[in-house]
Design a protein around this nucleic acid. Structure first.
Length: 382
DNA sequence: CTGTCATTAGTCAGACAG
DNA sequence: ATTACTGTCTGACTAATG
């Protein structure tokens, strides 16, 4: 017997900033920003009082990773350059990102939910989808229990949307942030979803939104009313039909609890733009380093690769990539470096370079010796 | 034999997201 | 003037194969 799906989307509230507030409760209620590669640590003053760096003291190329709701009220949002945000909120506190702490709290909240149901899809560090269909409990009570479990495990709040599918749940978890809970039935599509801006659909970004605006489509309702042929002619067959389905609240994607990575990569933005000849030694060292770190990631995660690619960002922000598929799988730094070097030869080096990256694709899991032995050796009775 | 079509793999750019 | 890092997906194009 098939029953209606109940899918939840759970999103932690201002996750990185909220984790920092656990360490620095005295900052609660203030505009706080997490970000910046070289943002200085807080300093313990001689009087024993902790001093924090302010946004106006920052100089560099970093961006805002997360901000508290107080900082957002001042116009400071994720992805904004720190220099620009310093103009909007010069006295906001700036904290460096502490990814180890975030991963720790990420594991905590996910295991708290996993204790209630294992039907969880990982969507990065601070959000998950949960398939609640097979649980008997009433929807609202169940969602409240999940929020309480997350709060008990971490001291952090989250927002949850529960609807018949992932698309709508993702929209709904955002409707009542922070510490929100939104349960939506498909009956309510026209009244509660159609008035929202088209951009609220996960997958419609700035570019697609602009294109839609030029077609005089601004809300999800207007998108739902647009002729399929119009959408297909402007966005292609696959994207056009997807847009239409999404606007009608149709999404049959399952909650995927296990998946293999498709690629693993490392990239870095330099402190200053580097010149191909003048800074040759520095570039070469960074390049080798990226290859070695990538090899380390590959081996730690147990994959070999058959496709190596590089990425360059020039001083003018133009991005270029090159990749090559190898005749055999590799997984060590020296071979990665060799292949990446070949890719680099096919790239024009006329401008200064801002960023360099190395990527491994076409991944296959490595059968470890232990695994091979276990697979091949029958268990002996002694 | 030449041209066309379908299909697949590979390469690259770009959009999007957390 | 400023604009991170990691990862997934799609569209456009080319080449190879049948």
């Amino acid at each position: 017997m098939n029953r209606a799906r109940r899918i939840a989307h759970l999103d932690m509230d201002a996750f990185f900033a909220s984790v920092e507030l656990l360490s620095y409760p005295q900052l609660r209620g203030q505009p706080v920003v997490v970000g910046g590669r070289n943002a200085s640590q807080s300093i313990l003053g001689p009087d024993g009082v902790v001093r924090f760096t302010r946004l106006k003291d920052y100089a560099g190329r970093g961006v805002v990773t997360t901000s508290t709701y107080e900082a957002r009220a001042l116009g400071v949002f994720s992805g904004m350059g720190l220099m620009k945000s310093a103009m909007l909120a010069p006295d906001a506190i700036l904290l460096p990102a502490n990814f180890e702490a975030y991963r720790h709290y990420s594991r905590l909240f996910k295991s708290a939910v996993a204790a209630i149901t294992p039907n969880i899809e990982d969507r990065g560090i601070d959000e998950i989808y949960i398939d609640l269909t097979d649980l008997e409990e009433e929807t609202k009570a169940l969602a409240q229990r999940i929020k309480q479990a997350v709060s008990d495990a971490t001291g952090l709040s989250c927002s949850i949307g529960v609807t018949p599918n992932k698309l709508l749940s993702k929209i709904c978890s955002d409707l009542d942030k922070p510490n929100g809970l939104t349960v939506l039935d498909i009956q309510e599509l026209a009244t509660r979803i159609w008035p929202l801006p088209a951009k609220k659909i996960n997958g419609i970004g700035p570019k697609a939104n602009e294109k839609l605006a030029k077609l005089d489509i601004h809300t999800i309702g207007e998108l739902a009313a647009a002729p399929a042929a119009l959408l297909i002619s402007h966005f292609g067959r696959a994207t056009g039909t997807w847009l239409r389905q999404a606007a009608h609240g149709i999404d049959t994607r399952p909650v995927v609890t296990e998946s293999e990575p498709k690629s693993i990569s490392r990239e870095t933005t330099f402190e200053r733009d580097l010149h191909v000849r003048h800074d040759r030694a520095a570039l070469s060292e960074i390049f080798t380093n990226l290859c070695m770190r990538l090899a380390d990631d590959l081996q730690r995660k147990g994959y070999a690769t058959r496709t190596i690619g590089i990425k360059l960002k020039y001083a003018d922000f133009q991005v270029i990539t090159r990749d090559m598929t190898l005749p055999i799988e590799i997984s060590d730094g020296t071979h990665i470096r060799q292949a990446a070097q070949e890719c680099l030869k096919r790239v024009p080096l006329t401008q200064r370079i801002r960023l360099l990256g190395v990527r491994a694709g076409a991944l296959t899991p490595i059968t470890t010796d232990a695994g091979a032995m276990k697979g091949l050796q029958p268990d002996l009775p002694f």
